[in-house]
Deep mutational scan, measured.
Amino acid sequence: EEDDHMEFCRVCKDGGELLCCDACPSSYHLHCLNPPLPEIPNGEWLCPRCTCP
């Protein structure tokens, strides 16, 4: 299965362990989110761009 998510964080543009949005190709480091997440959430996760009205 091919993964179309970005291979770098949308905020800092660095690679590493990234959290991928379930609705778009964006990826983020947990510490780059505002507010930062302490751990990878269970289940579906939507990035700030997808949850913003």
Rank of each mutant, 00 (worst) to 15 (best):
L19M: 13
S27Y: 10
E39A: 11
G16D: 11
H31A: 09
D22A: 13
E7L: 08
L30F: 09
T51Q: 14
T51P: 09
D22V: 09
L30T: 13
A23L: 13
G16F: 09
L46M: 06
C9L: 01
D3G: 14
M6Y: 04
K13R: 09
L19G: 02
A23H: 14
G16E: 15
L37G: 06
D3M: 15
G16S: 11
M6K: 15
A23P: 03
C32W: 00
L30N: 10
E44M: 05
N34Y: 07
R49P: 08
C32P: 02
R10S: 09
C12E: 03
C52G: 12
E39K: 08
I40D: 03
S27W: 07
E17G: 07
D22M: 13
P35Q: 08
C50L: 02
E44D: 13
E44H: 13
P53H: 11
H5Y: 09
I40Y: 09
C47E: 01
A23Q: 15
C32T: 02
C50V: 02
C24A: 02
Y28S: 02
E1K: 13
D14F: 07
L33Y: 03
P25R: 14
C50S: 01
L37T: 11
C12D: 02
R49A: 11
V11L: 08
C32K: 02
C12F: 01
L33G: 03
H5R: 09
C9N: 01
K13L: 06
C21Q: 02
P48I: 05
D14S: 07
A23M: 04
P41A: 07
C21K: 02
S26V: 12
G15Y: 03
F8V: 07
N42A: 12
D3N: 15
E17H: 07
E17F: 05
P48A: 05
I40T: 14
G15P: 08
L33I: 15
E7W: 05
H29Q: 01
E1R: 03
P53L: 14
V11R: 08
D14M: 10
W45E: 03
N42W: 07
F8R: 10
M6W: 07
W45G: 03
M6S: 06
R10F: 15
E1D: 03
G43S: 11
L19T: 07
L19I: 15
R49G: 14
H29E: 01
L46N: 15
G43Q: 12
P38I: 02
D4P: 12
E44G: 10
C32F: 01
A23R: 11
D3T: 15
P38S: 08
C32L: 01
P48V: 05
I40M: 08
E17A: 09
V11N: 08
W45M: 03
H5F: 13
F8T: 12
T51M: 05
A23V: 08
